[in-house]
Amino acid sequence: MKRRIFSLELILALVALVGIMAVGVGQAMGEGDEDGGKIIFTKPVKAVVFDHANHLAQGLDCESCHDEIFQMETGSAEAGDDFTMASLYEGKYCGACHDGETAFASNTRCTVCHIGVKGYNKETSTGTEEKKGHE
């Protein structure tokens, strides 16, 4: 009897652990994904989207940006104080390509990358709003 309870606890703990890991991976914007998935930056403003798939489809590969322009580690760009539009205009970060020649200039078409608070909520919600609507 005691043994059974123990094994039940073990199974529960395992399930919980897997769940936590899955959530953790999800927050890290798909670390396990081959292409890095979608990155959503929230600093310095909420929120900017970077979709790896879009950029790979343009013929870029990992080495195009990593590790010279962007480090692979999640959050490393946001950690810097110079991750601003002013830096982009100087050719840093996204501005390396988004200069008006290689890709559209950083000071144009703002909302292509800036998805805002609304976009952030859409990207991070797990369909809870839809459920509410049906109740």
Binding site: V45, C110, H114, I115, G116, V117, K118, G119
Partner: peptide, 9 residues
């Protein structure tokens, strides 16, 4: 309008 990025500050 085109400058608004919905940062909601």
């Amino acid at each position: 309008q085109n400058r608004c990025i919905d940062c909601e500050r």
